[in-house]
Amino acid sequence: MVAVAAFWILAASAVAGALGVVVARNVFYAAIGLVVSLIAVAGLYVTLDADFLAVAQFMIYVGGIAILIVFAVMMTAQLRRGSQTNRLWPGGLAIAGLLYLSLVSGIMQTDWETSSGAIPTSPMVASAADEGVRLPDVLFSTYLLPFELAGVVLLVATIGALVIARDDSAPSL
């Protein structure tokens, strides 16, 4: 019962925050809507027994990306023009609406083969008697190469962002 209530509250917050992002005229309010939506999704991960992902979502998205976006909003400081829609927004609304309707009808018509197997208590903390796999077991064996590549992606993105955003008038190193 608590889980059901938690799901509906969190889902409503996530959708409300997402709507705030696209509806708000003020860019700063849109950023606040994004933060609300991201926190609600972190809560949804808890309801899905994904504790590690919930913490990662909170730290990376809410603590990192959202703060970065708020900084960008303040540095570019065109708040008076606000968040306008472009000329083609009715077309965008139609495409997004059609995609949404087709996705929902597909979800509803599919007979999902859900498993009723045992749910692990937590992916990170396994008791001594627990013989099942844990998240690190999967991440550092089967997916070791993608894990290393993700590190390379982050390094390249960091250097690239520094090079692109550098001010030309600043004294060079």
């Binding site: 696209v22 065109q78 306008q84 829609t85 472009n86 077309g91 965008g92 609304l93 495409i95 949404y100």
Partner: peptide, 12 residues
């Protein structure tokens, strides 16, 4: 879908 709409329809 909300994100898709925002990506296509927003100017900022």
């Amino acid at each position: 879908a909300i994100g898709l709409f925002g990506t296509m329809a927003k100017r900022n």
